[in-house]
Write a protein that binds this DNA or RNA. Structure first.
Lengths: 229, 229
DNA sequence: CGACCATTTGATATGGATCAAGCGATGTGG
DNA sequence: CCACATCGCTTGATCCATATCAAATGGTCG
Protein backbone atom coordinates (compact mmCIF):
# COMPACT_ATOMS: atom_id res chain seq x y z
CA UNK A 1 0.00 0.00 0.00
CA UNK A 2 1.92 2.99 1.20
CA UNK A 3 4.91 2.80 3.43
CA UNK A 4 5.31 6.34 4.39
CA UNK A 5 8.70 7.89 4.91
CA UNK A 6 8.10 10.66 7.30
CA UNK A 7 9.82 13.90 6.59
CA UNK A 8 12.73 14.91 8.76
CA UNK A 9 11.09 17.98 10.16
CA UNK A 10 8.77 18.70 13.07
CA UNK A 11 5.60 16.90 14.02
CA UNK A 12 6.16 13.36 12.91
CA UNK A 13 3.05 11.59 14.11
CA UNK A 14 3.45 7.90 13.72
CA UNK A 15 -0.04 7.15 12.51
CA UNK A 16 -0.18 4.78 9.57
CA UNK A 17 -1.85 6.39 6.64
CA UNK A 18 -3.59 3.25 5.49
CA UNK A 19 -5.78 2.37 8.46
CA UNK A 20 -6.23 4.61 11.42
CA UNK A 21 -8.73 6.70 13.23
CA UNK A 22 -9.55 10.07 11.77
CA UNK A 23 -7.96 12.79 13.82
CA UNK A 24 -9.07 16.33 14.24
CA UNK A 25 -7.33 18.91 12.19
CA UNK A 26 -6.47 22.45 12.98
CA UNK A 27 -5.88 23.51 9.42
CA UNK A 28 -4.62 27.06 9.36
CA UNK A 29 -6.93 28.10 6.57
CA UNK A 30 -10.16 26.33 7.24
CA UNK A 31 -12.37 27.67 4.52
CA UNK A 32 -14.50 24.54 4.29
CA UNK A 33 -16.16 21.95 6.50
CA UNK A 34 -14.28 19.30 4.58
CA UNK A 35 -11.09 20.26 6.31
CA UNK A 36 -12.53 19.70 9.74
CA UNK A 37 -12.12 15.97 9.46
CA UNK A 38 -8.57 15.62 8.24
CA UNK A 39 -5.17 15.01 9.74
CA UNK A 40 -2.02 16.79 8.58
CA UNK A 41 0.79 14.50 7.48
CA UNK A 42 4.32 15.05 6.28
CA UNK A 43 5.64 13.47 3.13
CA UNK A 44 9.32 13.62 2.26
CA UNK A 45 10.41 14.57 -1.25
CA UNK A 46 9.57 11.96 -3.90
CA UNK A 47 7.36 9.88 -1.64
CA UNK A 48 4.37 8.04 -2.99
CA UNK A 49 1.14 9.30 -1.47
CA UNK A 50 -1.08 6.81 -3.25
CA UNK A 51 -0.90 4.58 -6.31
CA UNK A 52 -3.04 4.34 -9.38
CA UNK A 53 -5.92 1.91 -8.90
CA UNK A 54 -5.64 1.88 -5.16
CA UNK A 55 -8.97 2.35 -3.39
CA UNK A 56 -9.63 6.05 -3.03
CA UNK A 57 -10.09 6.05 0.74
CA UNK A 58 -8.77 9.52 1.27
CA UNK A 59 -8.63 12.88 -0.34
CA UNK A 60 -5.87 15.35 0.23
CA UNK A 61 -5.27 19.03 0.62
CA UNK A 62 -1.83 20.48 0.21
CA UNK A 63 -0.82 22.66 3.13
CA UNK A 64 2.74 23.20 1.96
CA UNK A 65 4.99 21.66 -0.65
CA UNK A 66 4.08 20.33 -4.08
CA UNK A 67 2.53 17.13 -5.39
CA UNK A 68 2.40 15.54 -8.82
CA UNK A 69 -0.11 13.00 -10.05
CA UNK A 70 0.84 10.72 -12.92
CA UNK A 71 0.33 7.54 -14.85
CA UNK A 72 2.95 5.33 -16.44
CA UNK A 73 2.26 3.98 -19.94
CA UNK A 74 3.19 0.47 -20.97
CA UNK A 75 6.29 1.72 -22.76
CA UNK A 76 7.51 3.31 -19.54
CA UNK A 77 6.70 6.89 -20.41
CA UNK A 78 5.21 8.86 -17.57
CA UNK A 79 2.40 11.34 -18.06
CA UNK A 80 1.92 13.88 -15.30
CA UNK A 81 -1.71 14.79 -14.81
CA UNK A 82 -1.29 17.76 -12.55
CA UNK A 83 0.82 19.65 -10.07
CA UNK A 84 -0.78 20.63 -6.78
CA UNK A 85 0.48 23.34 -4.53
CA UNK A 86 -0.57 24.92 -1.26
CA UNK A 87 -4.34 25.12 -1.03
CA UNK A 88 -5.08 22.58 -3.77
CA UNK A 89 -7.17 19.49 -3.18
CA UNK A 90 -6.26 16.29 -4.99
CA UNK A 91 -7.12 12.62 -4.92
CA UNK A 92 -10.86 13.25 -4.92
CA UNK A 93 -12.29 10.66 -7.25
CA UNK A 94 -15.76 10.04 -8.40
CA UNK A 95 -15.11 6.32 -8.76
CA UNK A 96 -13.71 4.34 -5.87
CA UNK A 97 -10.21 3.95 -7.23
CA UNK A 98 -7.50 6.53 -7.78
CA UNK A 99 -7.13 7.24 -11.49
CA UNK A 100 -3.54 8.47 -11.09
CA UNK A 101 -0.68 7.91 -8.70
CA UNK A 102 0.42 10.78 -6.49
CA UNK A 103 3.88 11.70 -5.19
CA UNK A 104 5.31 14.58 -3.28
CA UNK A 105 7.78 16.59 -5.34
CA UNK A 106 9.22 18.42 -2.37
CA UNK A 107 8.82 17.76 1.33
CA UNK A 108 5.13 18.45 1.82
CA UNK A 109 2.59 18.83 4.55
CA UNK A 110 -0.70 17.43 3.48
CA UNK A 111 -4.08 17.28 5.07
CA UNK A 112 -5.40 13.74 4.71
CA UNK A 113 -9.17 13.52 4.78
CA UNK A 114 -11.25 10.39 5.00
CA UNK A 115 -13.38 10.15 1.94
CA UNK A 116 -16.19 8.22 3.52
CA UNK A 117 -16.51 10.90 6.16
CA UNK A 118 -16.88 13.61 3.53
CA UNK A 119 -19.30 11.58 1.48
CA UNK A 120 -21.27 10.84 4.62
CA UNK A 121 -21.36 14.52 5.49
CA UNK A 122 -22.48 15.42 2.01
CA UNK A 123 -25.58 13.29 2.39
CA UNK A 124 -26.77 15.44 5.24
CA UNK A 125 -25.18 18.78 4.48
CA UNK A 126 -25.61 19.85 0.92
CA UNK A 127 -23.21 22.66 1.44
CA UNK A 128 -20.63 19.88 1.54
CA UNK A 129 -22.22 18.16 -1.45
CA UNK A 130 -21.93 21.41 -3.31
CA UNK A 131 -18.28 21.73 -2.43
CA UNK A 132 -17.55 18.22 -3.66
CA UNK A 133 -19.13 19.23 -6.94
CA UNK A 134 -17.16 22.46 -7.02
CA UNK A 135 -13.87 20.65 -6.46
CA UNK A 136 -14.64 18.16 -9.18
CA UNK A 137 -15.79 20.92 -11.51
CA UNK A 138 -12.63 22.94 -11.05
CA UNK A 139 -10.57 19.84 -11.65
CA UNK A 140 -12.51 19.23 -14.84
CA UNK A 141 -11.73 22.74 -16.06
CA UNK A 142 -8.09 22.22 -15.26
CA UNK A 143 -7.93 18.97 -17.19
CA UNK A 144 -9.73 20.53 -20.16
CA UNK A 145 -7.13 23.29 -20.21
CA UNK A 146 -4.43 20.66 -20.06
CA UNK A 147 -5.87 18.98 -23.15
CA UNK A 148 -5.69 22.25 -25.05
CA UNK A 149 -2.04 22.56 -24.06
CA UNK A 150 -1.20 19.08 -25.28
CA UNK A 151 -2.24 19.69 -28.87
CA UNK A 152 -0.03 22.73 -29.34
CA UNK A 153 3.56 23.26 -30.45
CA UNK A 154 6.42 22.97 -27.98
CA UNK A 155 6.72 26.76 -27.66
CA UNK A 156 3.03 27.11 -27.00
CA UNK A 157 3.03 24.35 -24.41
CA UNK A 158 5.93 25.81 -22.52
CA UNK A 159 4.47 29.31 -22.70
CA UNK A 160 1.14 27.99 -21.44
CA UNK A 161 2.86 26.14 -18.65
CA UNK A 162 4.73 29.21 -17.49
CA UNK A 163 1.58 31.33 -17.50
CA UNK A 164 -0.26 28.61 -15.61
CA UNK A 165 2.45 28.49 -12.97
CA UNK A 166 2.62 32.26 -12.77
CA UNK A 167 -1.14 32.48 -12.30
CA UNK A 168 -0.84 30.41 -9.15
CA UNK A 169 1.39 32.72 -7.22
CA UNK A 170 0.49 36.24 -6.12
CA UNK A 171 1.21 38.83 -8.77
CA UNK A 172 4.85 38.69 -9.56
CA UNK A 173 6.71 37.96 -12.72
CA UNK A 174 9.15 35.67 -10.97
CA UNK A 175 8.11 32.05 -10.85
CA UNK A 176 9.84 29.56 -8.60
CA UNK A 177 9.35 26.14 -10.15
CA UNK A 178 9.15 23.35 -7.61
CA UNK A 179 9.49 20.65 -10.26
CA UNK A 180 12.32 19.36 -12.42
CA UNK A 181 12.63 19.67 -16.19
CA UNK A 182 11.66 16.02 -16.41
CA UNK A 183 8.45 16.74 -14.53
CA UNK A 184 7.67 19.65 -16.82
CA UNK A 185 8.41 17.52 -19.87
CA UNK A 186 6.15 14.73 -18.65
CA UNK A 187 3.40 17.22 -17.92
CA UNK A 188 3.62 18.78 -21.37
CA UNK A 189 4.16 15.57 -23.33
CA UNK A 190 7.60 16.71 -24.47
CA UNK A 191 11.15 15.59 -23.79
CA UNK A 192 13.39 17.23 -21.28
CA UNK A 193 15.64 18.40 -24.11
CA UNK A 194 12.80 20.10 -25.93
CA UNK A 195 11.69 21.86 -22.75
CA UNK A 196 15.22 23.04 -22.13
CA UNK A 197 15.74 24.25 -25.67
CA UNK A 198 12.39 26.01 -25.71
CA UNK A 199 13.22 27.87 -22.51
CA UNK A 200 16.51 28.89 -24.06
CA UNK A 201 14.70 30.16 -27.16
CA UNK A 202 12.28 32.15 -25.02
CA UNK A 203 15.22 33.59 -23.16
CA UNK A 204 16.92 34.56 -26.44
CA UNK A 205 13.59 36.07 -27.44
CA UNK A 206 13.75 38.28 -24.38
CA UNK A 207 10.42 36.74 -23.41
CA UNK A 208 11.77 35.32 -20.17
CA UNK A 209 14.95 35.20 -18.15
CA UNK A 210 16.20 32.13 -16.34
CA UNK A 211 18.44 33.30 -13.50
CA UNK A 212 18.62 29.76 -12.17
CA UNK A 213 17.13 26.62 -13.59
CA UNK A 214 14.25 26.56 -11.12
CA UNK A 215 13.62 30.28 -11.30
CA UNK A 216 11.96 31.94 -14.27
CA UNK A 217 11.18 35.59 -14.76
CA UNK A 218 8.42 36.50 -17.18
CA UNK A 219 9.72 39.49 -19.03
CA UNK A 220 7.06 39.71 -21.71
CA UNK A 221 3.74 38.25 -20.71
CA UNK A 222 2.04 39.55 -23.82
CA UNK A 223 4.33 37.46 -25.97
CA UNK A 224 3.64 34.41 -23.83
CA UNK A 225 -0.09 35.00 -24.01
CA UNK A 226 0.09 35.33 -27.75
CA UNK A 227 1.71 31.91 -27.89
CA UNK A 228 -0.83 30.59 -25.44
CA UNK A 229 -4.03 31.54 -27.32
CA UNK B 1 -26.40 33.28 -30.10
CA UNK B 2 -28.03 30.32 -31.68
CA UNK B 3 -30.26 30.44 -34.69
CA UNK B 4 -31.62 26.99 -34.68
CA UNK B 5 -32.36 25.20 -37.92
CA UNK B 6 -35.06 22.75 -36.98
CA UNK B 7 -34.74 19.31 -38.40
CA UNK B 8 -37.20 18.25 -41.06
CA UNK B 9 -38.83 15.52 -39.05
CA UNK B 10 -41.71 15.34 -36.57
CA UNK B 11 -42.28 17.55 -33.56
CA UNK B 12 -40.85 20.89 -34.60
CA UNK B 13 -41.76 23.13 -31.72
CA UNK B 14 -40.94 26.67 -32.57
CA UNK B 15 -39.58 27.66 -29.21
CA UNK B 16 -36.44 29.74 -29.31
CA UNK B 17 -33.71 27.98 -27.47
CA UNK B 18 -32.22 31.14 -26.05
CA UNK B 19 -35.05 32.52 -23.95
CA UNK B 20 -38.25 30.67 -23.38
CA UNK B 21 -40.30 29.00 -20.75
CA UNK B 22 -39.22 25.59 -19.62
CA UNK B 23 -41.57 22.97 -20.94
CA UNK B 24 -42.33 19.62 -19.45
CA UNK B 25 -40.58 16.68 -20.94
CA UNK B 26 -41.74 13.15 -21.42
CA UNK B 27 -38.32 11.69 -21.92
CA UNK B 28 -38.55 8.04 -22.86
CA UNK B 29 -35.87 6.93 -20.48
CA UNK B 30 -36.36 8.97 -17.40
CA UNK B 31 -33.76 7.57 -15.07
CA UNK B 32 -33.19 10.80 -13.24
CA UNK B 33 -35.11 13.73 -11.81
CA UNK B 34 -32.95 16.03 -13.90
CA UNK B 35 -34.76 14.96 -17.00
CA UNK B 36 -38.13 15.95 -15.65
CA UNK B 37 -37.51 19.60 -16.39
CA UNK B 38 -36.28 19.49 -19.95
CA UNK B 39 -37.72 19.93 -23.41
CA UNK B 40 -36.72 17.77 -26.37
CA UNK B 41 -35.44 19.69 -29.39
CA UNK B 42 -34.29 18.71 -32.83
CA UNK B 43 -31.02 19.91 -34.30
CA UNK B 44 -30.18 19.35 -37.93
CA UNK B 45 -26.77 18.02 -38.94
CA UNK B 46 -23.90 20.46 -38.29
CA UNK B 47 -25.97 22.91 -36.30
CA UNK B 48 -24.46 24.90 -33.46
CA UNK B 49 -26.07 24.07 -30.14
CA UNK B 50 -24.09 26.58 -28.13
CA UNK B 51 -20.88 28.53 -28.49
CA UNK B 52 -17.77 28.70 -26.36
CA UNK B 53 -18.04 31.40 -23.70
CA UNK B 54 -21.78 31.73 -24.01
CA UNK B 55 -23.56 31.70 -20.66
CA UNK B 56 -24.24 28.12 -19.67
CA UNK B 57 -27.99 28.48 -19.22
CA UNK B 58 -28.84 24.96 -20.24
CA UNK B 59 -27.52 21.49 -20.08
CA UNK B 60 -28.30 18.83 -22.62
CA UNK B 61 -28.99 15.14 -22.88
CA UNK B 62 -28.71 13.37 -26.20
CA UNK B 63 -31.82 11.36 -27.01
CA UNK B 64 -30.69 10.40 -30.52
CA UNK B 65 -27.95 11.52 -32.89
CA UNK B 66 -24.43 12.63 -32.07
CA UNK B 67 -22.86 15.84 -30.81
CA UNK B 68 -19.29 17.13 -30.79
CA UNK B 69 -17.85 19.77 -28.50
CA UNK B 70 -14.79 21.72 -29.63
CA UNK B 71 -12.59 24.75 -29.36
CA UNK B 72 -10.80 26.57 -32.15
CA UNK B 73 -7.21 27.67 -31.54
CA UNK B 74 -5.87 30.99 -32.75
CA UNK B 75 -4.20 29.33 -35.72
CA UNK B 76 -7.55 27.93 -36.83
CA UNK B 77 -6.99 24.37 -35.72
CA UNK B 78 -10.00 22.78 -34.09
CA UNK B 79 -9.73 20.54 -31.06
CA UNK B 80 -12.69 18.29 -30.39
CA UNK B 81 -13.26 17.74 -26.69
CA UNK B 82 -15.78 14.93 -26.88
CA UNK B 83 -18.40 13.09 -28.84
CA UNK B 84 -21.76 12.54 -27.18
CA UNK B 85 -24.26 9.91 -28.22
CA UNK B 86 -27.63 8.72 -27.05
CA UNK B 87 -27.89 8.87 -23.26
CA UNK B 88 -24.94 11.23 -22.74
CA UNK B 89 -25.26 14.53 -20.94
CA UNK B 90 -23.18 17.48 -22.12
CA UNK B 91 -22.94 21.20 -21.59
CA UNK B 92 -22.97 20.91 -17.81
CA UNK B 93 -20.43 23.42 -16.59
CA UNK B 94 -19.22 24.24 -13.18
CA UNK B 95 -18.56 27.84 -14.15
CA UNK B 96 -21.27 29.93 -15.74
CA UNK B 97 -19.89 29.90 -19.27
CA UNK B 98 -19.56 27.05 -21.73
CA UNK B 99 -15.93 26.00 -22.00
CA UNK B 100 -16.43 24.48 -25.47
CA UNK B 101 -18.77 24.99 -28.39
CA UNK B 102 -21.21 22.23 -29.26
CA UNK B 103 -22.58 21.12 -32.63
CA UNK B 104 -24.74 18.29 -33.82
CA UNK B 105 -22.85 15.90 -36.07
CA UNK B 106 -25.97 14.19 -37.38
CA UNK B 107 -29.61 15.21 -37.06
CA UNK B 108 -30.14 14.90 -33.33
CA UNK B 109 -32.90 14.97 -30.78
CA UNK B 110 -31.70 16.58 -27.61
CA UNK B 111 -33.27 17.17 -24.28
CA UNK B 112 -32.62 20.77 -23.26
CA UNK B 113 -32.66 21.33 -19.53
CA UNK B 114 -32.60 24.62 -17.71
CA UNK B 115 -29.52 24.78 -15.58
CA UNK B 116 -30.93 27.11 -12.97
CA UNK B 117 -33.80 24.69 -12.42
CA UNK B 118 -31.42 21.82 -11.81
CA UNK B 119 -29.19 23.86 -9.55
CA UNK B 120 -32.26 25.03 -7.68
CA UNK B 121 -33.44 21.48 -7.25
CA UNK B 122 -30.05 20.38 -6.05
CA UNK B 123 -30.23 22.80 -3.16
CA UNK B 124 -33.25 21.01 -1.77
CA UNK B 125 -32.80 17.51 -3.07
CA UNK B 126 -29.35 16.16 -2.51
CA UNK B 127 -30.11 13.21 -4.70
CA UNK B 128 -29.97 15.75 -7.49
CA UNK B 129 -26.86 17.34 -6.05
CA UNK B 130 -25.29 13.93 -6.04
CA UNK B 131 -26.20 13.38 -9.65
CA UNK B 132 -24.66 16.69 -10.67
CA UNK B 133 -21.50 15.54 -9.00
CA UNK B 134 -21.70 12.15 -10.69
CA UNK B 135 -22.10 13.72 -14.12
CA UNK B 136 -19.17 16.02 -13.55
CA UNK B 137 -17.09 13.17 -12.14
CA UNK B 138 -17.71 10.94 -15.13
CA UNK B 139 -16.86 13.79 -17.45
CA UNK B 140 -13.63 14.30 -15.55
CA UNK B 141 -12.71 10.65 -16.00
CA UNK B 142 -13.46 10.90 -19.69
CA UNK B 143 -11.25 13.95 -20.12
CA UNK B 144 -8.44 12.30 -18.16
CA UNK B 145 -8.62 9.32 -20.50
CA UNK B 146 -8.55 11.72 -23.43
CA UNK B 147 -5.33 13.23 -22.11
CA UNK B 148 -3.71 9.83 -21.98
CA UNK B 149 -4.72 9.28 -25.61
CA UNK B 150 -3.20 12.56 -26.72
CA UNK B 151 0.31 11.74 -25.58
CA UNK B 152 0.53 8.49 -27.51
CA UNK B 153 1.61 7.56 -31.02
CA UNK B 154 -0.82 7.79 -33.93
CA UNK B 155 -1.47 4.04 -33.90
CA UNK B 156 -2.17 4.07 -30.20
CA UNK B 157 -4.50 7.04 -30.47
CA UNK B 158 -6.52 5.49 -33.25
CA UNK B 159 -6.63 2.12 -31.47
CA UNK B 160 -7.79 3.84 -28.29
CA UNK B 161 -10.40 5.75 -30.20
CA UNK B 162 -11.81 2.62 -31.80
CA UNK B 163 -11.98 0.82 -28.48
CA UNK B 164 -13.64 3.83 -26.92
CA UNK B 165 -16.27 3.93 -29.64
CA UNK B 166 -16.78 0.18 -29.48
CA UNK B 167 -17.28 0.34 -25.73
CA UNK B 168 -20.24 2.63 -26.24
CA UNK B 169 -22.37 0.30 -28.28
CA UNK B 170 -23.73 -3.03 -27.06
CA UNK B 171 -21.32 -5.91 -27.52
CA UNK B 172 -20.51 -6.14 -31.16
CA UNK B 173 -17.28 -5.83 -33.05
CA UNK B 174 -18.84 -3.63 -35.70
CA UNK B 175 -18.64 0.07 -34.99
CA UNK B 176 -20.67 2.56 -36.98
CA UNK B 177 -18.85 5.86 -36.78
CA UNK B 178 -21.14 8.86 -36.84
CA UNK B 179 -18.29 11.30 -37.39
CA UNK B 180 -15.99 12.14 -40.30
CA UNK B 181 -12.27 11.48 -40.54
CA UNK B 182 -11.74 15.18 -39.91
CA UNK B 183 -13.69 14.92 -36.66
CA UNK B 184 -11.65 11.91 -35.59
CA UNK B 185 -8.43 13.70 -36.50
CA UNK B 186 -9.42 16.77 -34.50
CA UNK B 187 -10.36 14.62 -31.54
CA UNK B 188 -7.06 12.77 -31.60
CA UNK B 189 -4.83 15.73 -32.39
CA UNK B 190 -3.77 14.21 -35.72
CA UNK B 191 -4.35 15.07 -39.36
CA UNK B 192 -6.98 13.43 -41.47
CA UNK B 193 -4.23 11.83 -43.58
CA UNK B 194 -2.58 10.25 -40.56
CA UNK B 195 -5.89 8.87 -39.33
CA UNK B 196 -6.60 7.41 -42.76
CA UNK B 197 -3.15 5.90 -43.11
CA UNK B 198 -3.30 4.45 -39.63
CA UNK B 199 -6.63 2.79 -40.32
CA UNK B 200 -5.15 1.33 -43.48
CA UNK B 201 -2.18 0.00 -41.51
CA UNK B 202 -4.50 -1.59 -38.96
CA UNK B 203 -6.44 -3.13 -41.80
CA UNK B 204 -3.24 -4.54 -43.33
CA UNK B 205 -2.41 -5.78 -39.86
CA UNK B 206 -5.64 -7.74 -39.86
CA UNK B 207 -6.50 -5.83 -36.71
CA UNK B 208 -9.60 -4.28 -38.23
CA UNK B 209 -11.60 -4.32 -41.45
CA UNK B 210 -13.12 -1.22 -42.99
CA UNK B 211 -16.05 -2.34 -45.14
CA UNK B 212 -17.08 1.25 -45.68
CA UNK B 213 -15.40 4.40 -44.45
CA UNK B 214 -17.88 4.92 -41.61
CA UNK B 215 -18.03 1.29 -40.64
CA UNK B 216 -15.21 -0.46 -38.79
CA UNK B 217 -15.03 -4.06 -37.68
CA UNK B 218 -12.71 -4.91 -34.82
CA UNK B 219 -11.11 -8.16 -35.81
CA UNK B 220 -8.47 -8.35 -33.12
CA UNK B 221 -9.36 -6.52 -29.97
CA UNK B 222 -6.38 -7.92 -28.11
CA UNK B 223 -4.04 -6.21 -30.56
CA UNK B 224 -5.93 -2.95 -30.17
CA UNK B 225 -5.81 -3.23 -26.40
CA UNK B 226 -2.12 -3.87 -26.51
CA UNK B 227 -1.69 -0.63 -28.44
CA UNK B 228 -4.02 1.10 -26.04
CA UNK B 229 -2.25 0.24 -22.79
C1' DC C 1 38.02 18.45 -4.24
C1' DG C 2 35.44 14.96 -6.55
C1' DA C 3 31.19 12.39 -7.50
C1' DC C 4 26.73 12.77 -8.79
C1' DC C 5 22.72 14.53 -10.75
C1' DA C 6 20.15 18.03 -13.36
C1' DT C 7 20.36 20.80 -17.17
C1' DT C 8 21.93 22.51 -21.50
C1' DT C 9 23.73 22.07 -26.03
C1' DG C 10 24.92 19.58 -30.31
C1' DA C 11 24.21 16.16 -34.17
C1' DT C 12 21.21 13.14 -36.33
C1' DA C 13 16.92 10.40 -37.02
C1' DT C 14 12.03 9.94 -37.56
C1' DG C 15 6.90 10.13 -37.03
C1' DG C 16 3.58 12.73 -38.46
C1' DA C 17 2.49 17.16 -41.06
C1' DT C 18 2.10 19.22 -45.34
C1' DC C 19 1.47 19.47 -50.16
C1' DA C 20 -0.46 17.20 -54.01
C1' DA C 21 -2.87 13.95 -56.68
C1' DG C 22 -6.03 10.06 -57.31
C1' DC C 23 -10.24 7.52 -56.25
C1' DG C 24 -14.92 6.24 -55.03
C1' DA C 25 -19.52 7.41 -53.70
C1' DT C 26 -23.30 10.49 -54.01
C1' DG C 27 -25.99 13.80 -56.12
C1' DT C 28 -27.43 17.02 -60.13
C1' DG C 29 -28.65 18.55 -64.51
C1' DG C 30 -29.09 17.56 -69.31
C1' DC D 1 -29.85 7.10 -67.68
C1' DC D 2 -25.61 8.91 -68.24
C1' DA D 3 -21.94 12.77 -67.91
C1' DC D 4 -19.99 15.36 -64.63
C1' DA D 5 -19.27 18.09 -60.43
C1' DT D 6 -18.63 17.59 -55.55
C1' DC D 7 -17.17 15.76 -51.37
C1' DG D 8 -14.95 12.67 -48.29
C1' DC D 9 -11.39 9.65 -48.14
C1' DT D 10 -7.05 7.42 -49.47
C1' DT D 11 -2.43 7.30 -51.21
C1' DG D 12 2.05 9.29 -52.54
C1' DA D 13 6.20 12.43 -52.00
C1' DT D 14 8.58 15.55 -49.30
C1' DC D 15 9.44 18.42 -45.23
C1' DC D 16 9.97 19.68 -40.53
C1' DA D 17 9.32 19.75 -35.47
C1' DT D 18 10.48 17.12 -32.02
C1' DA D 19 12.66 12.76 -30.45
C1' DT D 20 16.78 10.40 -29.81
C1' DC D 21 21.54 9.78 -28.98
C1' DA D 22 25.60 11.87 -27.19
C1' DA D 23 28.53 14.99 -24.87
C1' DA D 24 29.58 19.16 -22.25
C1' DT D 25 28.46 22.17 -18.38
C1' DG D 26 26.95 23.48 -13.95
C1' DG D 27 25.30 22.99 -9.37
C1' DT D 28 25.10 20.44 -4.89
C1' DC D 29 26.62 17.71 -1.24
C1' DG D 30 29.67 14.57 1.16
Amino acid sequence: MLTQTMSTSGSSRSMGHGARAVALARAQDTDSPIEMIGAPMLFARNTEIYGENEPAEYLYKVISGTVRTYKVLNDGRRQIGAFYISGDVFGLEFGDKHAFSAESIADSKILVIKRSAVIGLSKRDNEVARELWALTGRELQRVQDHIMLLVKTAQERVAGFLLEMAARVPASNAVELPMSRQDIADYLGLTIETVSRTLTQLENNATITVPSSRRIVLRNRAALSRLNA
